[in-house]
Amino acid sequence: MLEARLEQAQILKKVVEAIKDLVQDCNFDCNDAGIQLQAMDNSHVALVSMKLGSEGFSPYRCDRNIALGINLNSLMKVLRAAANEDLLTLKAEDQPDSLNLLFESSSQDRLSEYDIKLMDIDQEHLGIPDTEYAATITLPSAEFQRICRDLSALSESVSIEANKDGVKFACSGDIGNGSVTLRPHTNVEDEDKSTKIELTEPVNLTFSLKYLVNFCKASSLSATVRLCLSNEVPLLVEYQMGAGYLRFYLAPKIGD
């Protein structure tokens, strides 16, 4: 059986909130290492990969591999009933029909319990190769969100060009064009506000802004976001969580 308690319900709330517009139904794969999820969006252009390691739960118990097939809209309906600071316990049998969620508020002596029905989901799993990316950019997640939002007002696509001088996000649309360039920058007072660029070779790729704007819904999970790029491979957008990560992969647009 699975029994996993999170210190703060908001971690799972934020994960589901961030991905529910991209993915409707998916399996939460539970084993002794933790809870993982991999799912493509409907158009098969983007891939979500999430891991919450067992060390992020206390206690964590999962005797055998369990796939929890969940409709994310249903899960979100239940998670909205949890306060951010509530303790959240997930429980399921070895061959479950439902997932039990328990929310505990220590300050209010309040206990809420929900069961949501599970579904059989036949999901395709993709092998993600280990990649040495040509460019890795770490920047404040709010900055990345702002850039994607601002440029999406002008265009459907953005080019991301990284070289030793900085990273340039550029777009052009019917009303005109725009760009934002970030140079490497260290904020000594707040490391999370720094922009770091690690580069082995220059890259220039084009992506659909619609997906990037969607990924940025994860911004509340982490103060920083990591963008990993190599020419002609999918972009990796990574948000670190305490004991895991939320990663989005996006296939680049090709040609003119």
Binding site: H44, V45, A46, P129, S208, A251, P252, I254
Partner: peptide, 14 residues
């Protein structure tokens, strides 16, 4: 206009 390939054309099915 540019083409939007799927993610499956980069990552193989396992």
């Amino acid at each position: 206009t540019s083409n939007q390939p799927t993610i499956q054309s980069f990552f193989q099915q396992r």
